[in-house]
Nucleic acid binder design. Structure first.
Lengths: 103, 103
DNA sequence: ATATTATATAGATAATTGTCTATTTGTCAA
DNA sequence: TTGACAAATAGACAATTATCTATATAATAT
């Protein structure tokens, strides 16, 4: 799993609306319209945030007719978090165990 | 280990200069002056970034005479990354093993 | 064909933020 | 006490970004 650049990854996560969207599409495919329904922002704003998440490789998109469904790329997120731990918490016990777990 | 709010954590990481500073103070105490020497930014800029990292609880500070030394809080970073994994990659195998490792 | 629906894109605007210079605060040495 | 040094703070400015409205694009239904 190629990890996203750590700065790009952090930037993608650095917004409350975006993290809400991530929660909504964490474990299931969800359409843009369904995301809009659950948040207090307009459809173009949701599309913008999905674009940011897509650029960072954190979501996958699937088109179906008029709709586009998005789903969080959990493997990528796990890999990026792992890299942050290796970079910035290398001596931490949890990090060491995570490294072993991911080998 | 109380984790920082995930959005605040991501914002703290969402800057290249800040990640460079984090690398410099990852495994050792380092003074503000030493950080300035190694980066292409002014001393107030470094102080500003250290303030952001301090607000997020990602660095510890120790004053010694005229100087202030900073060190990355690896446990906190590991805990915040772990929380991101639980939030956004709950079904990933590495996440599951990390949860077990941190219990 | 035309209307309707879903999403993306363009462009504007306001808020946030990264950086700088100037200054203040605090510590140590002469 | 005065001067030098280290770091923090204040304030200005420019770049980035989050949001909106308006519009374009694409698919489906009538």
């Amino acid at each position: 799993m190629a990890t996203t650049d750590p700065v790009l990854f952090a930037k993608a996560l650095a917004d409350e609306t975006r993290q809400k969207i991530m929660t909504l599409c964490c474990c299931a495919w969800i359409s843009v319209g369904e995301i809009v329904e659950q948040l207090q922002v307009t459809q173009p704003t949701v599309s913008h945030h999905l674009g940011v998440l897509r650029e960072a490789g954190l979501v996958e998109a699937r088109e179906e007719g008029k709709q586009t469904f998005y789903r969080l790329n959990q493997k990528k997120i796990s890999a990026c978090c792992g890299r942050l731990m290796v970079n910035f918490a290398p001596q931490d016990e949890v990090t060491k165990k995570m490294i072993i777990a991911s080998e």
